[in-house]
């Protein structure tokens, strides 16, 4: 069974084509990095896999039609600022990943608590499990969010810009955690990012969305001057420097993945 199978899919939002003829087979255990400028369809791609956006054509996720609330899918969003007084701790957020969608009250439960604690420990977040969410640093919050995504023992992890507004070394930690999980659990990762560099070492294939067009292939196939110039329909130069990818364009910022965080 493929983790994700998409055939001849087409998505239009507000009369604008986001993608068309999209065909993709993602093997189990594969790491797919999704890049492209804002509004090009990265998040829509995740929403289609989650069953929140209906795209035409055939889409199969873990062998079935995308449906809301599939427990085999974990989801990691971007870090955001949270009210420091909000009476919700890391462990409460992680528990929501397990049973937050169920009706009724979240009553105390021993077995659930131990599962939550075990997951928090596995991502190195046990130390700040009782701190209110709004008082965690960006990196701590993302560790808790990864625990929240992993607590239900998913087979597929969808990450929507989880590195945004994090320091470089924290970005590296978050990537390592996700890489470790993939090795340990044999899970599949779809990773949306505006900067491909932090996950370049983990990436098996790159899916790039630009202006209603798309390109799919290994990083060496997609992240080249030729392939990106074709995708952007304008001259783009790709420079490889010390294992990093730098994208340059004479139309200015191609709006995507060349964000350079050199200190």
């Amino acid at each position: 069974m493929n983790a994700v199978r998409i055939e001849a899919s087409r998505l239009e939002l507000g009369g604008r084509q986001i993608w068309s003829g999209l065909t993709l087979d993602l093997r189990q255990g594969e790491f797919l990095t999704v890049i492209g400028p804002n509004g090009a369809g990265k998040t829509s791609f995740l929403k289609a896999l989650l069953g929140l956006l209906p795209a035409s054509g055939s889409i199969e996720v873990l062998g079935s039609h995308p449906r809301r609330g599939d427990p085999r899918i974990g989801y990691v969003p971007q870090q955001k600022s949270i009210d420091p007084d909000l009476p919700v701790r890391g462990r409460d957020l992680v528990r929501m990943g397990l049973d937050g969608a169920r009706w009724g009250l979240a009553l105390p439960s021993g077995p659930i608590d131990s599962q939550v604690t075990a997951t928090l420990t596995s991502v190195g977040a046990a130390r700040f499990a009782d701190v209110p969410l709004g008082r965690l640093s960006g990196g701590e919050q993302q560790r808790v969010r990864i625990a929240q995504a992993l607590v239900g023992q998913p087979e597929l992890l969808l990450c929507d810009e989880p590195l945004l507004s994090l320091d470089l070394h924290v970005q590296r930690e978050v990537c390592e955690l996700i890489g470790e999980w993939r090795t340990r659990a044999g899970g599949t990762v779809v990773f949306v990012t505006h900067d491909v560099n932090p996950v370049l070492g983990l990436t098996d294939r790159v899916l790039a969305f630009v202006g209603g067009r798309w390109a799919l292939g290994t990083p060496d196939e997609v992240l080249t001057s030729e392939a990106l110039s074709r995708l952007y329909e304008s001259p783009v130069a790709v420079i490889r420097h010390e294992g990093r990818v730098i994208v340059l364009s004479d139309v200015g910022d191609p709006g995507g993945f060349h964000h350079d965080h050199q200190p």
Partner: peptide, 23 residues
Amino acid sequence: LAAISRPLIFASVDPEVAEAKGV
């Protein structure tokens, strides 16, 4: 309130993930 409490807290604190989880 008791009937919707758990998903309501999820949707209030963490709307993106709650939506992804089918809330």
